[in-house]
């Protein structure tokens, strides 16, 4: 079968619409992952609650996102949209990763910093907010960047709960028109078009932060 350019032109707007949904999912999900992951990393140091939270996150990290999404979608009331469920599940799933990244950053803060804060009788909130977290987060920014791309590439899994993003759009058109060659290939190319430049950009940022 030969590549049909006319068909390609016709489906491109729809695919770009799908790409827009993908980008929204990624960005909002990433913000959830960044903030929830930080909260988890801090709570993990609390007695009793910490290990429980860690166990839950470990479960989330080692089971497939797709299955989690279907599970949660069935669990919540039907008024909640697939997009909302999708974005939250994606964000929470990746919070399990970012929490580990933050944790390594927190553990990397020198013991003397904690001791100095103690010596100054700083309250817990200041110790974390003004001393530990600023140092920890600066160190892990490059590692956190990688997960943005990973999440971008995981968004197609949300089609399982009827979130119509790029790949689902392509699949739909393919099924309707009985032409998969252009649709799926084009979807793949659009993914590369976003993910490779982002990867290069993030690597550049990494180098900048690593130099500091």
């Amino acid at each position: 079968m030969i590549w049909d350019f006319e068909f390609t032109g016709r489906i491109l707007p729809d695919l770009l619409g799908g790409l827009w949904v993908t980008v929204q999912l990624t960005v909002i999900g990433y913000l959830i992952a960044l903030s929830l992951g930080l909260a988890v990393a801090v709570v993990r140091r609390v007695r009793v609650v910490g290990p429980i939270v860690h166990g839950v996150m470990e479960f989330i990290r080692t089971t497939p996102l797709l299955v989690q999404a279907v599970f949660v979608f069935a669990l919540v009331p039907p008024e909640i949209s697939a997009f909302t469920v999708g974005v939250v599940v994606l964000g929470v799933h990746y919070a399990a990763y970012t929490a580990e990244v933050y944790r390594s950053g927190i553990e990397g803060v020198a013991k003397g910093q904690w001791e100095a804060a103690r010596a100054l009788s700083l309250p817990v909130s200041r110790t974390w907010g003004a001393i530990v977290l600023p140092q920890a987060i600066r160190k892990v920014i490059p590692a956190l960047g990688n997960y943005l791309i990973a999440m971008f590439k995981d968004t197609p899994l949300l089609f399982a709960i009827t979130v119509v993003e790029l790949l689902a759009t392509a699949q739909r058109i393919g099924a309707a028109e009985f032409r998969y060659t252009e649709t799926i290939t084009l979807a793949g190319l659009l993914f590369l078009l976003v993910s490779i430049p982002s990867a290069i950009l993030i690597r550049r940022l990494e180098r900048r932060y690593a130099a500091v």
Binding site: P156, L167, Q171, I184, T185
Partner: peptide, 23 residues
């Protein structure tokens, strides 16, 4: 590395299942 890290595994699976037989 760049190509296969850039494409989601799911896209790859679709491609192999639908496009490869087609092509």
């Amino acid at each position: 590395v760049e190509v296969f890290r850039g494409i989601a595994a799911m896209v790859l699976i679709f491609w192999m299942a639908y496009v490869l037989p087609d092509l």
